[in-house]
Write a protein that binds this DNA or RNA. Structure first.
Length: 575
RNA sequence: CGGGGAGUAGCGCAGUCUGGGAGCGCACCUGCCUUGGGAGCAGGGGGUCGCAAGUUCGAAUCUUGUCUCCCCGACCA
């Protein structure tokens, strides 16, 4: 590709509305341009990178026996009404009517469409296992799109759906996808983790997320430093702290704590550590059913664990008025004793091992000291309700400790079970001629988001450092002085030879000063660069520079070409 | 949707408080010059100041409304 005839509109300055580095660099390097909030043009260079990644995904999906197809992005409301998600999905589902007043939506995902196709076409156990996938544009009317391609409203996604005769067959399909995902992200040269995850609104029994590690990541994840356990903090299990053998119970004592509304205030006021206090929170369901939650003072509630444990669709903190009405006390002095009206009280498992704690008295400016479970208050059940923190013991092995990371979710695999097949009546006949419900799995990869995540993880002050497998070009040839016929002829020759070897080459033939060319080449992140200048040429040599390390090799022309070929081949070969 | 901020040339911004010339840097066009890290000189083109209504002799500037975008929360690939 000739740079002078191509289209790479780079920017010297950072657009003011880009916050994270990948978004800034994608704009500056001329990969994308915003059309509207969360909606982007993919410019030629950005599209090349996306296509590279799509092809890796395609190869690995095909290898894992998934079959490519393409579903429509506009979907009829009836299917969503049938699955029940027309009601549930909320405003994220972009709905509209056609000229005949029939309702439609832009597909945010395709469980309904694929299940509808499968129920019509898959009738026998002989036709399974089968797994369909597509790479397609989705639309979710995000409440707050941000960070460029990282969280757009319109985005490219690879989604796959597996169909199996029973749960254990579905597990095999799931494992196959899990392994394919591992290969996909390894091939891209990304530093990532596969972690256990909550299933969220998609539903189903279990799932893993694939997280690219980056400080700017929106998710917190933990991994064990001794075993293979890794999980999203939303899901990560905590271990109870073992109870003291025979705690000596001190007498209950009511203490004034004027204006001490936070755990830190109370603990500081009483000269105690916050882990000797119990924090009391009141939460409500979507139907305003309340629950009181007890946690060790220094712990943080995991709302997803609470939601799952209560079997609610939604949790939110109770309002000040609700709290007053339920407990008779303002927030900050809540506790399980002396409640105005009966209230379900549940506690985190760690609370079970605590004794002589400080806890709110349900009275303004009053706390109890030396409160004890059983003697002074009771709870309905103990469950894992808190967020794990770095240094917590691993829930799976004895010696491990949890480490904490930030991650960008680029892939997610789910075991769906029969949620959609039951709703849409997707069944088959087994070997005995009996009708059975199909078991499903679904598997997503954010294509644009992965490119953004790769940039988030691979950049420096000069711009993007693309991992070679997803770089728009493998290498560039930079002719320093285009007016020098010898330089141009040699540069062109090198460009032709590299192309003939199957390399993707960007030939910077622009009549620009060297500084501009170097800056642009660095910014757009081409992994390898061959510079042809008159000085080097006088000795028959050109320069090969690696973008990632800055390493420079001054080599005879043929050797330079061979070096680039080998480096590209090595980067593309996946063990 | 709740809270905060911003809309002035392609990009980054000043001007708004205190009403009266629409400006600066980069980018772009022409010429000269220059060619190993975003050069220099000279000349030039480009903006309904987000939109609408109002106040005023006069509005980028004051008032009201409205739209859009960005940041913090719930959602997710």
């Amino acid at each position: 590709m000739l740079y002078s005839r191509y289209f790479i509109p780079t920017l010297k300055e950072t657009p003011s509305d880009a916050e994270v580095i990948s978004h800034q660099l994608m704009l500056r390097a001329g990969l994308i341009r915003k059309l509207s909030a969360g909606i982007y043009n993919y410019l030629p260079l950005g599209l090349r990178s996306i296509r590279k990644f799509e092809n890796i995904v395609r190869e690995e999906m095909n290898k894992a026996d998934a079959i490519e197809m393409l579903m429509p992005s506009v979907q009829p409301a009836e299917l969503w009404q049938e699955s029940g998600r027309w009601q549930f999905y909320g405003k994220e589902l972009l709905r509209f009517k056609d000229r005949k007043e029939n309702e439609f939506c832009m597909g945010p995902t395709h469980e309904e469409v694929i299940t509808d196709m499968v129920r019509r076409e898959i009738k026998s156990y002989r036709q399974m296992p089968i797994n369909f996938y597509q790479i397609q544009t989705k639309f979710r009317d995000e409440i707050r799109p941000r960070f460029g391609l990282m969280r757009g409203r319109e985005f490219i996604m690879k989604d796959a759906y597996s169909f199996d005769v029973d749960s254990s067959a579905a597990d095999l399909s799931y494992d196959k996808m899990y392994q394919a995902y591992m290969r996909i992200f390894e091939r891209c040269g990304l530093n990532f983790r596969a972690v256990e995850a909550d299933t969220g609104s998609i539903g189903g029994s279990s799932s893993h997320e694939f997280m690219v590690l980056a400080d700017s990541g929106e998710d917190a994840i933990v991994s064990c430093d001794a075993c293979r356990y890794a999980a999203n903090v939303e899901k990560a299990e905590s271990r109870p702290v073992p109870a003291q053998a025979e705690p000596e119970l001190s007498p209950l004592q009511k203490t004034t704590t004027p204006g001490m509304k936070t755990i830190a205030d109370v603990a500081g006021f009483l000269g105690l550590d916050s882990n000797q206090t119990v924090k009391t929170l009141v939460y409500c369901s979507e139907k305003d059913e309340p629950v009181m939650v007890l946690l060790r003072g220094d712990h943080e509630l995991n709302e997803i664990k609470l939601k799952n444990n209560m079997g609610w669709d939604e949790v939110r903190m109770a309002s000040e008025e609700q709290i007053m009405q339920l407990t008779g006390s303002p927030a900050g002095f809540l506790g399980p004793m002396g409640l105005k009206q009966p209230l379900t009280v549940i506690a985190d498992i760690t609370v079970q091992g605590m004794s002589n704690v400080v806890i709110g008295a349900n009275e303004r400016d009053m706390h109890f000291q030396n409160a004890n479970l059983g003697r002074d208050f009771t709870v309905e059940r103990f469950v894992d309700l808190r967020n794990v923190v770095a240094g917590d013991p691993c829930p799976r092995c004895e010696q491990g400790r949890l480490e904490m990371w930030r991650g960008i979710e680029v892939g997610h695999v789910f075991k769906l079970g029969t949620k959609y097949s039951t709703a849409l009546n997707a069944t088959y006949l087994d070997a005995d001629g009996r009708e059975q419900v199909i078991f499903m799995g679904c598997y997503g990869i954010g294509i644009g988001r992965t490119i953004a995540a790769a940039i988030e993880q691979n950049h420096d002050e000069n711009g993007i450092i693309f991992p070679l497998p997803i770089a728009p070009f493998h290498c560039s040839v930079v002719a320093l002085n285009t007016k020098d016929k010898g330089v141009m002829a040699e540069a062109e020759e090198i460009y032709f030879k590299l192309e003939k070897l199957g390399m993707d080459v960007l030939f910077d033939d622009r009549d620009e000063r060297p500084g501009i060319k170097f800056k642009d080449n660095d910014l757009i992140g081409i992994p390898l660069r061959i510079v042809v200048g008159s000085k080097g040429l006088a000795e028959g040599k050109v320069e090969v520079k690696k973008r990632a390390t800055g390493e420079v090799l001054l080599l005879p022309i043929e050797e330079a070409i061979e070096t680039v070929r080998q480096l590209v081949e090595k980067a593309l070969t996946f063990a």
